[in-house]
């Protein structure tokens, strides 16, 4: 691969006149317009009384599977979410209790896309979950793995801890780190491109299985 630094130097040189001209056009277009210094404060999101219940209801609306489990039952329910004989991949930082549930799983160490395509399912955690929209957000930390790992296999089993569920989009934006790549997932992949008939499952995982772990005490 061409060293990026070299590419950058060459390219910026080449587009410098364009850069200067565009910025010049912007400045003359905005002559006399005062920029607004203060960030816009958006109105608050919706806050359901029972966040976990709302989250589960909204996930189910997308025709994803969602189950509630006590902490002690998580391993069993992860195992139950995987068809027998399924080839499973897990991210390197999956917590031990979950890892134990999928003893035969491959641990991702940079598998190629073609290798991932041979795998049936992936088990991960998430960074945050949004009750109002039924969304899971991955920030691809070691307990979630690289982006490709949760994309290529056809079944995604995702464990959400109850304390990770926030009320609405603004609450999620506030805790997420934009420097990390983020994947917001709301149900299985879907298309309505053919006569507006919704079809679940195009390119991303066709099955999304969410396990919400209720915390005790």
């Amino acid at each position: 691969m061409t060293p990026v630094v070299e590419v950058r130097r060459a390219q910026r040189g080449a587009s410098k006149p364009a850069r200067d001209e565009i910025l010049g056009r912007v400045r003359s277009a905005l002559a006399g317009v005062e920029p607004d210094r203060e960030p816009v404060a958006a109105p608050p999101g919706v806050r359901a009384a029972d966040l976990v219940a709302r989250f589960a209801e909204r996930v189910a609306d997308y025709r994803a599977t969602v189950v509630h489990r006590a902490p002690g039952d998580v391993a069993v329910s992860v195992a139950a979410a995987l068809p027998s004989g399924a080839r499973v991949v897990v991210p390197p930082g999956l917590p031990d209790d979950l890892r134990a549930a999928v003893a035969g799983a491959v641990v991702d160490d940079g598998l190629s896309a073609a290798e991932l395509d041979e795998i049936d399912a992936v088990v991960t955690c998430c960074r945050v979950a949004i009750a109002e929209t039924g969304t899971i957000v991955l920030d691809h930390a070691p307990d979630q793995g690289r982006r490709a790992v949760t994309l290529v296999p056809d079944r995604h089993v995702c464990v959400v801890r109850a304390h990770q569920v926030v009320a609405d989009v603004p609450d999620a934006v506030a805790v997420l780190d934009p420097e990390r790549p983020l994947t917001w997932i709301s149900g299985p992949s879907a298309t309505s491109d053919i006569e507006l008939d919704r079809v679940e499952g195009v390119h991303g995982p066709r099955v999304l299985h969410v396990i919400v772990v209720e915390e005790t005490g």
């Binding site: 940079g110 982006r147 420097e179 990390r180 983020l182 994947t183 917001w184 709301s186 879907a190 991303g204």
Partner: peptide, 15 residues
């Protein structure tokens, strides 16, 4: 309420 997938990225993420 939300589209199935939203991706965000900031430049290059090593690995």
């Amino acid at each position: 309420r939300m589209n199935p997938y939203t991706s965000t990225w900031s430049g290059v993420t090593p690995g």
